[in-house]
Structures are given as C-alpha cells and as structure tokens.
Design a binder for these strands. Structure first.
Lengths: 244, 244
DNA sequence: ACAAAAGTGTTGAGAGTACACCCATGC
DNA sequence: GCATGGGTGTACTCTCAACACTTTTGT
C-alpha cells in the first residue's frame, strides 16, 4: 500500500518531544477521561505427546484462588503491547524469541470482577523442549494442558482460547507458522504429525508431502535419521526465503 | 468448539456481584497499576462515485489543529469496546445499525503525543445515502476521502487504515460483508461495480455473475429497473439465510 | 522372513479464468 | 436503426481428494 504515508518512528518521536511541553498541553489534558487497567494475555501453544497443548497458570490471588487462567499481566507505562506480551512470556517461561501475534482486545466491562480491565490477547507458538517454566509473581503453578481436557478458566479466557485456536487452525494451512513448533531439522512425517495434532484430524500422506514439497517451504538436506528397525527418514529444514 | 466451556453473561455477572464486595477485595487492588487512556478508532468505509471512500474528521484540538484523523473517542467506564465504537459512530454520523468489526489494538507508547493512549481499531461499512454527518465534540469537519487521495493523517492512523483496507479486501471475496454497502435491492452490475471499487481492479462479467449466483447469496426478484435507453436490469436482494 | 515406517503417481471432480456475441430498450 | 448496458456458455488449467504398493532398515 504505497499510497499511504506512514510516519517513521523518528518523525513521531520528534513531534512528541516538540509538542509535549507546549503551553497548550494542560488545556487539553486527555488524562481527565476514565482510564481502565490494560493487560496482555497469552495463549501459548505447543505440540507434544500427540496433543496440542496450551499453557495455563494457577492463580493464587483473590478472587481466583485455585482457578486456571492464561498467562498475562498489566502493560507498563512505557511499553508497547507486543513488548508487554514478550516480557510476560519470558517472566513465565524464561524463553525469549518466540512467534507472537496479536489476536484482538477483549473489553467487556464485566470480564474482570475486580475492576475494569481491558486485555489485549496474543497467541504464541513455542517448542516445548526449550521450556523451563517457573512460577512467578502472583501466579502459582504453570503447566501445559491438552486442549481437549481443559479445566474451567478464569475471566473470559475460554473465549480467548477459542479464538486463538480458530486462528491457529486457519493460519496453519496458508502460512508458515507451523514451523515455529518444529526443531531445526525434521522429517516430513514429523511435520505431518504436527499438522494433524493442530488440525485435530488425519491427513493423507501422499497429498500432504506433495503440497509441502511443491510449496517450496522445506529444503532437503543430505542427512537421514534412523528411529527404529525400518527405513531411515530424510531430514529437511525450513526454507528461510519463504518467510513472507 | 463445543469442548470449551464458555460461561454465560449471567454466570459472569453473578460472580462479579458475589465477589466484588468481598473483604479481600482491597488487598488485591489492581488499580494500583499504571492505567493508560483507552480509545476506539473507526475506519468507516463507503463506496460512492466509483471510489472507495473513508470517513475522516478534522481535529481542532491541540496538538492536531487542522490535521485529519479517523473518527473515534475514549471508552467510558461501563461501556464495552464495540459499544464505544457504535456510540462514537452514531455521534459522528447519526447512523446506528452498521456493520462493525474489531481490527486490533494499537499501543505504541508514543503513538499519541499527549499521553499514553491505547486504541482499539474497528472497521465499519456504511451506505453513504443513509448519512447525515455532523461535527461534534472536539471534532471539526467530517467528510469522505477517496482512499487514493488521502491527506496526511494524525497519530498512527495511516497504519490503521492500511490494515483495515487489507482486511476488507481479503474478506470481501470469502464473506458477505459487501452487501452492507448495497441498498435492499440491486442489480448484478451494481454488485460487480462495488467489488471492483473495493478491490481496485476490473472483473469479468460472466465469471462474476456465475460465482455470485452459484454461491446462493442473492435471490432474484420479479422486478426490473430501467436506467437509460437500454435493456432493463433485473433486481436482486440479499439472501438472509446466507448470513453465516 | 517379517515388522515397521519411509517413500512414491495417477485419476476424477470442482473452481477459477479467459473469451465474444445476442437482447431489450429509448431515442 | 443504432447506441447502450443487460444478459448468456464453453473450453482450458489448476488445485484438491481419493486411493495402494514398494523400499529400506533392524531383529
């Protein structure tokens, strides 16, 4: 969309500094309006044990003692939404470079019984092997739950999870996000298993391979891997040119 | 997604009332965290004069005097995000039942030079004939702009508009949103013109008709309309069963 | 030799695309 | 009768889905 004039971060920052100290600033004080708390919540998916799993934390704080919820927390004053989500995820898991994408904001006035909290939901994909989960802050235990055997969730987190799952499934076939859930080198059967876990249905082996290979998203390596008394499988890696 | 347990609004409200007055409430006061201002912004599209047009308001308030921006405003204390967007749109245009959908939240800490404002962007589709735009509140003039001849926009509204346009174009072929931009009865040529305006390219008449008719989204009426010295056109109406 | 997963092609159906002429009307 | 937009069908290509047997290894 080249016909839209997008201001650079430098231009924005310059105007901020120039205008913030203007004598007119006080007259138009927007902070007089109602200000809600703003949080970020994360739907963190991983695929293990033939199940698509989602990360939940057990809340210890009032009024949720013992209820499970999505990891998340409040946005800080000088922090973007994505940055807040990244920080919360790292605090909870110790992992820093993950695939993160915003879903949308949830702002029902009664979604949080404590006070008005608007939350911006994100979803993340993560290799479970990289994880070393730790409890932190107000949160108690952190663990993976199969999406087919979920506990009752706090707030409107069931709605958020539902949306995240729908989004993940609709993106998986048309984009390359699934490769965020795979190690550097993998077999075609491993990718297929992953797709089957995410979509919740079996796929035809020949059609799947044809599609993956003709899409050019994987590159054949000259390595094979042997996992049992049968023919060894060829290893592939993701084609970095297909990042889009 | 039947395996997710979604709480009903009644259940949520009940727990709110039960828990809000608990003696523990004060100990876990979440309002001690930083609270930004939260706004909703609207990308309102219409199609007229062979152009896709977007509604912009001229700001009179500091520090934007004379700059154009998307219509929008702050979310109130007991108001959902969609409700806030609807209210702002009605204040600005007098029109109440429009198609509205959330895009996503924009929260760059420096997107607003006055203070930290997180905005939840929405897009709307509206029949321009129904409009009676009025200036209101802090806003000056309101008018339609062709998406191909836009002024420089305030804030990050160029980014938001860009996203809305991309979303509209990708939804138009797979969903029924386009019919929100048409009167009750219309000719097939009128729909085609609308699609061409939105997508910014010409379409093949025979293929377009084949697709629209076989999708079952329109119902033939027994009326025709005569607009010039040529064969009269058949009028169709939207099939309400295809709402999805 | 056999168990177990890896690997490999063809066919039919449906969707999308390209393309050109007759029809009904007002003037 | 002619100008103007309304209305119609066919052929090709490409994508998707269904479907079964051979290969390579360890034991």
């Amino acid at each position: 969309m080249t016909y839209l004039n997008v201001r650079t971060p430098e231009q924005i920052r310059a105007s901020v500094e120039a205008e913030k100290r203007s004598p007119e600033a006080r007259r138009y004080d927007v902070t007089r309006y109602f200000r809600p708390s703003v949080a970020v919540d994360l739907v963190v998916f991983t695929a293990t044990k033939n199940q698509l799993q989602v990360m939940l934390v057990e809340r210890k704080d009032w009024p949720f003692k013992g209820r499970w919820a999505l990891p998340g927390g409040f946005v800080r004053e000088h922090e973007g939404l994505m940055a807040a989500a990244k920080r919360e995820l790292e605090e909870e898991t110790g992992v820093s470079d993950v695939y993160l994408e915003q879903l949308r904001a949830f702002g029902d006035p009664e979604r949080d019984p404590r006070t008005r909290v608007i939350t911006v939901a994100h979803y993340a994909l993560i290799l479970s092997e990289r994880l070393r989960m730790k409890a932190s802050g107000d949160a108690g235990q952190v663990r993976w739950w199969s999406i087919y055997e979920l506990p009752e969730l706090a707030f409107d987190h069931d709605l958020i999870l539902d949306l995240a799952l729908t989004r993940l499934r609709s993106q998986i076939m048309s984009s390359r996000v699934a490769f965020r859930l795979l190690p550097e080198k993998f077999t075609l059967t491993e990718i297929q298993k992953l797709y089957e876990i995410i979509l919740g249905k079996t796929l035809d082996k020949r059609n799947f391979r044809k599609k993956i290979l003709s899409a050019g998203v994987v590159i054949e390596t000259d390595e094979t891997i042997l996992k049992g008394r049968h023919r060894p499988a060829r290893l592939f890696r993701f084609n970095p040119e297909m990042e889009q």
